[in-house]
C-alpha cells in the first residue's frame, strides 16, 4: 500500500485522465474510446472508455462474463471490435497484416493457460520473437533470454520443454517471453487463474516486481491482494460496462456502486 499516494484521488478528475502516484497526469499509453462488441445477442463490451497512462498499473476486476477478458484481448486485437477506437502509444490498432503484427510485438500478452510453444524449449520460447520479429542474432537473443529467465527464476529449466515445468514456472516463462520483446505495455489475462494455489505467489511476485519497475500493465485478475499491493487504479466491470474506476484504497474500502459492493461482499466475506 505504501506506493499508493492517497492524495491522487483529488486529481482523478475523470475516467479518461490517468492519475499519477507522484502527481500530474501521465502521458496516455493505451486509449480505449467508445468500444462496442457483441457475441451474438450478448453485448459484451458496451461503450467502453478507458485511458491507461505510461507506467500505470490498472487492475480490471469483475464477475465472470463481465467482459474484462474480452477487453484485455481486444487491446492487441485477439478479439475484433465493432465500433470505437483503441490506440496504443498514439497509434490506432491496424486492421490486419504486417502493421498489426508490428504493433502486437510492442504489446506483451500473458494468458491464463500460459500458451508456451509446446514443441520448443524454454529458451527457444523466449528467443523466437526477438529473432524472428526483432531480427536479433541468435546469440544476442539467447543471452537476453538467459538473463530474463534468471530474473523470473527459471534459469535452471532453460533447456527443458514446457510440459516438464510446473504451471507457475510456465507462467513465469510466459512473462519472460513477453518481456523479451521489450513491450511498451503488458496485458495479463487472468494469469494466475489456472494455477495451483501454492504457485500463485511466485507469479504475482514477478508481476509486482514489474509494476515497481514502471512497466505499463493492464491486469485482469481475481487476486485482490495484487490489486491492493500493485495497482494504481482498479477498473470494475460488470455486464459489459465499466461500472467504477477508483484507486484500490477507495475501491476496497468504500466502493461507490451497488454492483461493486455486491461483488466485494461476495468475495471478501470468506
Amino acid at each position: 500500500m505504501d506506493d499508493v499516494n492517497p492524495g491522487q484521488t483529488d486529481r482523478t478528475t475523470g475516467k479518461t485522465v490517468a492519475p499519477d502516484r507522484t502527481g500530474g497526469a501521465r502521458e496516455p499509453m493505451v486509449v480505449i474510446e467508445g468500444v462496442n462488441k457483441h457475441f451474438g445477442d450478448l453485448h459484451v463490451l458496451q461503450d467502453i472508455n478507458l485511458t491507461v497512462g505510461k507506467g500505470e498499473v490498472v487492475v480490471v476486476l469483475g464477475p465472470s462474463g463481465s467482459g474484462k477478458s474480452t477487453l484485455c484481448r481486444a487491446i492487441n486485437r485477439l478479439e475484433t471490435i465493432e465500433s470505437g477506437t483503441i490506440t496504443i502509444d498514439g497509434k490506432a490498432l491496424p486492421e490486419e497484416g504486417k502493421p498489426l503484427a508490428q504493433l502486437r510485438a510492442d504489446v506483451g500478452m500473458v494468458f491464463q493457460s500460459f500458451n508456451l510453444f509446446s514443441h520448443k524449449t524454454i529458451r527457444e520460447n523466449v528467443t523466437l520473437g526477438p529473432v524472428k520479429v526483432r531480427k536479433k542474432s541468435k546469440s544476442e537473443a539467447s543471452t537476453q533470454a538467459d538473463a530474463l529467465l534468471e530474473r523470473v527464476g527459471v534459469a535452471a529449466q532453460a533447456d527443458k520443454y514446457p510440459a516438464q515445468l510446473s504451471g507457475g514456472q510456465q507462467q513465469r516463462v510466459a512473462i519472460a517471453r513477453s518481456l523479451a520483446m521489450g513491450p511498451k505495455v503488458m496485458l495479463f489475462d487472468e494469469p494466475t487463474s489456472a494455477l495451483d494455489p501454492e504457485m500463485v505467489n511466485e507469479v504475482l511476485d514477478v508481476m509486482v516486481g514489474l509494476a515497481k519497475e514502471g512497466m505499463t500493465m493492464i491486469v485482469v485478475t481475481h487476486e485482490m491482494g495484487f490489486a491492493r499491493k500493485a495497482a494504481d487504479r482498479v477498473v470494475f466491470m460488470a455486464d459489459g460496462q465499466v461500472v467504477e474506476v477508483a484507486t484500490p484504497e477507495e475501491f476496497f474500502t468504500a466502493p461507490k456502486s451497488a454492483r461493486a459492493k455486491d461483488f466485494l461482499g461476495k468475495i471478501l466475506t470468506h
Binding site: 504486417k98 502486437r104 504489446v107 494468458f111 500458451n115 510453444f117 509446446s118 517471453r177
Partner: peptide
C-alpha cells in the same frame, strides 16, 4: 490448441511466421 496461434500472434509473428514456426 488455439492458444498456440494466439501466443504466436501476440509476440508479433505474422500469419506466415506463426504457421512456419509454431
Amino acid at each position: 490448441p488455439l492458444g498456440q496461434a494466439e501466443a504466436a500472434r501476440s509476440i508479433g509473428l505474422t500469419f506466415t511466421q506463426s504457421l512456419r514456426e509454431v
